[in-house]
Design a protein around this nucleic acid. Sequence first.
DNA 1: AAGTCGGGGTA
DNA 2: TACCCAGACTT
Length: 331
Amino acid sequence: MDQGLKETLLAWYRATARPLPWRGEKDPYRVLVAEVLLQQTRAAQAAPYYHRFLKRFPTLEALAQAPLEEVLKVWAGAGYYARARNLHRLAQSVSELPRSREALLALPGVGPYTAAAVAALAFGERVGVVDGNVRRVLARFYALEDPSPQALWRLADALVEGVDPAAWNQALMDLGALVCTPRRPRCGDCPLSPSCRGREDPGAYPRPRRRSQKEEVLWALVLLGPGGVYLEKAEAGRYGGLYGVPLLDEKAFWERAKALGVAPRFLGQVRHELTHRRLRVRVWGARLEAPLEGLQDPSARPLSKLTQKVLGKALPLLAHEPVVSLPDAEA
DNA sequence: AAGTCGGGGTA
DNA sequence: TACCCAGACTT
């Protein structure tokens, strides 16, 4: 790509840039928060969380001093909760963000993309940034069916010569998001189109990755009693750090119901889609008249969207359920 | 290298 | 429905 074409893309960017909340931001902490939120997340989806997060945790120090549960409450709904846990750990591990890509890469939750993005956008380091958009733009421009990450990073680093790193990298990402889209790219509006080797068959570059989606059936136990809903905190792994109703396979579900001494009834089903899983949750519940350790107010805890769906199904039904006496736990 | 981790948008 | 999104970490 010659210098003239780069200038053309930069001019397109100046005229077309999306007015995103973090656009032009130079404060490294705020850039970091944006980049972590943007991992595998569309800009439009990340934007409201970006505002909420920075209002509640305006500085690295404020984040470090907050309890993890508070951090997760702000993150709740955004998905990939390890990002929030890692960001919190990061804040507690350094008092100031390092200024180089190399040093940033050592931080928890900061991989090649985030390290390069913070280095280039906040500190102006001359490094290329490769995200899903840039991968697609470069694969098409150079007609690469299955480019290796190493090849893409080398290309991106080479391309940032002679341009402003912050503007250039964001221009490439915006081009991918607005024009060089995965399907039906708008080649007629693309400033790179005259030199693009993939223009005749953009769908071929890069080759689509197929992913399998597995079915998973889970059983949810919703107990409503004095003091609220029975919630437990998930450990590491899926929904780690968040609160939710017990979500188990069939066998464990009945064991748990027996251990808690409850006789739940079927309330309905909830579907939930993840990238690699198709969850079908059978929702069972009961009302309790006696207090039970673990009954609490769900709105006071960080909850996943899945838990919100399950509660949304169960609570209206349980609210009309007559209070039944607890069966004997030994029965 | 392959699996796992959320949730939502698009064609 | 299938694929993807301003990826990172574990196995």
